[in-house]
Design a protein around this nucleic acid. Sequence first.
DNA 1: GAATCTATGATTAGGCG
DNA 2: ACGCCTAATCATAGATT
Lengths: 197, 197
Amino acid sequence: MTRKKVVIAYITNESRRKASFNKRKKGLIKKVSELSTLCGVETCAIVYKPNEPEPEVWPSQLGAQVVLERLHMLPQVDQMKRMVNQESFKRQQIKKAEDELYRLRKENKHKELELFMYRCIAGKASLRDFDWHDTIDMNFVIDETLKKINSRKNELSSVNGRHHSASSSYEVVNPAMTRDVHRNGSPLGPLNSSNTI
Amino acid sequence: MTRKKVVIAYITNESRRKASFNKRKKGLIKKVSELSTLCGVETCAIVYKPNEPEPEVWPSQLGAQVVLERLHMLPQVDQMKRMVNQESFKRQQIKKAEDELYRLRKENKHKELELFMYRCIAGKASLRDFDWHDTIDMNFVIDETLKKINSRKNELSSVNGRHHSASSSYEVVNPAMTRDVHRNGSPLGPLNSSNTI
DNA sequence: GAATCTATGATTAGGCG
DNA sequence: ACGCCTAATCATAGATT
């Protein structure tokens, strides 16, 4: 008997591996569900068994279906890639729709960020209310917004006959902002830097 | 001390919950990676912390990027839900685009399956070339196709004055097909080369 | 609050039916 | 191959710094 220390390495013996797999999968799912209920977070575990195309997924009661749906939506495209190559124009259609969707999302995001910026400047929102998962995009929006603001300010100045030196386009930035921008940056940038709008 | 039996229920105390979350998340990731290496399976764990739009994901070295990519495309929509609630019509636009995309995919799949069926019947393709991901859909297409074929056949029969008994709508199926339907094909059958009909 | 420690509960490898 | 059992390791709640 005397159980050894369990070396973490691929189990070559098939039956042992399978047994271990079943036990550990069960344990894992339990852990996932516990984490979910104890801490009130959406959690999900995905196990792709070899020789089985569908992954085994543990869903938290709430978000699971959604996550699964999200997950299942895209692979269909890949599945199709392996199929008869006829009617590829349909795929092009889909590609187009996807690109359009992506474009819409990006646009939407920018709009919302811009709006948020305005709210910050107006003191209606704090930067602390915001999740900094995409600093690159945010910096872009900050830049764009400040350009707009400065150009308007300069318009006003020249109308008034007084010209601001405008040493930096960032001069109107709330100090708290520049301080906070690079904090808490998510390691994950934008998914597909295919196009800079 | 004497640790109690640990009731699995939402931990209301914030600091305790956070502590538990960190400990358990660490443990969970360890478990996931162990399962992955011990049993040689692609595994992935996703934890959506509240107030953080990006889920924390543990990826298996190989499949991770792919899963992550798939996973990152859609959640953006949800991320936005937590943001300033302006411009929700844009979101509706996106939803619409998503639905349309999904519809297109489904349609495409059916078209391709149907086409593949015809090629099988014409002997231009073997069922071995095909991945049986989705037998339900496939059965649907088989049924639809056979109905069409049989109705045409019956039309011809009545024109010729000879009437086939047509005991089963499946009688026109190539025997090789029924034999192979439930065997699992090779996981890869690209056929990407320009195979014209 | 975060990091570390430690005793106890939880998980699971290995054995057996 | 599957489920149950038991001992041994592992994970972690609670305490401490």
